[in-house]
Design a protein around this nucleic acid. Structure first.
Lengths: 322, 322
DNA sequence: CCCGGCAACTTGAACGATCCAATACTGCCG
DNA sequence: CGGCAGTATTGGATCGTTCAAGTTGCCGGG
């Protein structure tokens, strides 16, 4: 099995290397009959473009990078993993491959960008876990590196394209579902104020309760994410018949502390499926596909001049607990 | 910010390109003072080897590929994700990067190997989810592609290096723990016979029970993996005080069907942590590091002539349910 | 009949690193 | 002080692709 290069194909098809290259990259400039002949040669020889050689000439690697989180909380870490699965699929469809990297913090991540860009000529990045004052986006933007974030730029201007899930719509749907099933005193168990995601999830609940004319004083508790902390915080919500939670971890705690009450979690993790917890499900596969789509637009130059922002609606998965 | 190539460094250090290349690849052939001068130039210019150019000349890409499973069961899928995290870390330390791919089945995976090898010049593969009659290993072996599997070659001869977790030791430890806490009628809830992993997990329980002189007739049930199927299978184990399970999913079912009984799961997934399920934990980070280590040996030619096999011991994480 | 213009294709050079063979240098011996 | 062995360094070729410039052949207008 010898090496099949563009020259092998050219010889077989009786044309020059450049013509083969044109068939691959700009087929419209080649006469149809020549094009077919070359394509036939490509197929019969099993020729494939050597990415390294192409990359050296063009500077584009057809590679995108995504950070894989070090470990995180066992329950919620899976959300990003599912996103990663979706992204790998979407990237393959768009002709890109996904390369992984890890980093301990934002600074380490930026150092990794530098290395990946210079050593591997990465085409672009997909960032996850955006947060207030995120230094990564500005670093990339300054250097004109194409990137898309999964998660909106909390607090910063919308100067780049992003995809996010409408967190408020998720808790609103959960609250609405509880209202429809007769609940009136619906509590919210969230995280301490300050995280963009957590605040949005709380807002969806609060707004829906306001619409329904239900007061929300005394119906709210906050805790760091975790089952035990969720349980002890939930124990303070004595006067509720149902609780909307900011995560499945918290929901699991609420389930323990408030038996018999209706409970809704967030993220529809494996735990929710296992214990029959009603939960808000994020369309992670779609989010990943959209991210890849936006990044592909940036990379092939077909992106609109103003960045695109997409807010995807989550859906409520009703199970035993609500 | 102009491009920094090996020629830039050579000029700055007052030597030739080849000398710079030698400092990078075979430092011992360069006089120490020259070496230091070159290293200084590299540092001050922020030079990094262009992988594409190196790859074109040497044929090695410093890239390894791992399959990311399409979706799988929500509870157990996380096991491979955790392995992936560990592998990314280990690869970075060894100077390699991880590229992802997906495939629907073994045939699709083999097609992907071909593409990755010819288009991206991948250096090697780490395979997961090995199974009886796995066609992937023989395909790779025939083509002399370096690879390591996480999971032993069930039924096939040990002709390649692999790392696996000692499943039998895990259930044995679980069974021993239950014996020590006074249980005698300890059941096993497993998968249908035939899967290497499932059979090994059953064997560890059976052997430990035999050692203790406890009969195991009527103490065993099998079900496809899943919480509901586990619950209905567990319901048949009426005469037990404790159950060792082949997975956390099954254990969750057992927990529901047999309240008050001691239950031990397998894999220590997020669900186990969340509900307080005692479970057998696999050393996934270590397994990943070992896989990377073996693969790195294969790639740099320092591997022993006979393949290496490593069996890592799992550990029991005791929580509320046992 | 000649020539400009165009489409289709070909040729030579370049990307940045490494390999190979040849050369310059060093210390050392006679 | 010349020459030799051994090592440090140099220049050129090369990997497979794409870019830029050049060639060929055909058509129609003048």
């Amino acid at each position: 099995m010898e090496k099949v290069t563009i020259a092998t194909v050219a010889e077989r098809a009786g044309v020059s290397r450049q013509t083969v290259s044109n068939v691959i990259n700009t087929p419209e400039v080649v006469r149809p009959e020549t094009r077919d002949r070359v394509r036939e040669a490509i197929a019969s020889l099993g020729y494939r473009v050597n990415q390294a050689a192409r990359q050296m000439r063009t500077g584009r690697s057809k590679l995108i990078a995504v950070r894989i989180e070090p470990a995180r909380d066992g329950i919620n870490g899976s959300v990003l993993d599912r996103f990663l699965h979706g992204l790998t699929d979407a990237a393959a469809l768009a002709g890109y491959r996904v390369m992984l990297y890890t980093a301990a913090d934002d600074a380490g991540e930026i150092a990794t960008y530098d290395e990946l860009l210079t050593a591997y000529d990465l085409d672009g990045f997909v960032l996850t876990s955006t947060h207030h004052g995120d230094p990564r986006t500005s670093w990339l933007a300054e250097r004109h590196v194409p990137f898309v974030t999964f998660g909106r730029p909390w607090g910063a201007p919308d100067t780049h394209s992003w995809v996010d899930v409408d967190n408020a719509a998720g808790t609103a749907a959960a609250t609405r579902h509880l209202l429809e099933t007769g609940h009136r005193r619906i509590g919210f168990l969230g995280w301490p104020a300050g995280s963009g995601v957590g605040d949005a999830r709380r807002a969806g609940w609060a707004a829906t309760m306001a619409e329904a004319g239900s007061p929300i004083d005394d119906l709210e508790a906050a805790a760091e994410d975790g089952v035990d902390s969720g349980a002890s915080a939930a124990a303070r919500l004595t006067d509720v018949t149902a609780v909307v939670c900011a995560s499945d971890s918290l929901a699991l705690g609420a389930l323990r502390a408030l038996p018999g009450r209706a409970i809704v979690g967030f993220d529809d993790t494996a735990v929710a499926q296992a214990v029959g917890l009603t939960s808000v499900s994020q369309p992670l596969a779609e989010a990943a596909a959209r991210c890849m789509g936006l990044l592909a637009e940036l990379l092939d130059g077909s992106a609109p001049t103003t960045p695109t922002q997409l807010l995807l609606p989550p859906s409520l998965v009703v199970r035993r607990t609500a």
